[in-house]
């Protein structure tokens, strides 16, 4: 069955990807310039995730209710709301905008 082949290959590849850093690098510290590059991974990948999850679609940009949800989340962040409140504000706004559009 195709699904089992896909599940096996994708499972093994993903396990290897996730273990790549901890297995290959382990506790060794990175040389200075490499460490400076790796230190920026968090802000860069988080920004890329925000973009792809907000307007990403099937090979195209999709502007939909998620945009309003992220806007509400940004407002909650601006008033220093706790993380669960940010998540709930974004979900509720996305749902309401989708319901009335």
């Amino acid at each position: 069955m195709t699904i089992w082949l896909v599940a096996l290959v994708v499972g093994v590849v993903t396990v290897v990807f996730k273990a790549a850093g901890p297995l290959v690098l382990g506790q060794r510290s990175l040389p200075g310039p490499v460490a400076d590059v790796v230190a920026l991974l968090a802000p860069v990948l988080l920004a890329a995730l925000v973009v792809t999850q907000t307007v990403g679609g099937d090979n195209r940009l999709v502007l939909d209710a998620r945009l309003a949800g992220v806007g509400a989340g940004a407002a909650a962040i601006a008033v220093r709301a706790p993380l669960p409140a940010v998540v709930v504000a974004a979900a509720v706004t996305t749902a309401l905008v989708r319901l009335f559009s």
Binding site: Q53, V70, A76, I77, R98
Partner: peptide, 22 residues
Amino acid sequence: PRALGLDGAFPALFLALLVPQL
């Protein structure tokens, strides 16, 4: 989950975690 707006929760979570990094 889309009717519940949950797909809008993920980018907001990542944004909330991004801001303190800047």
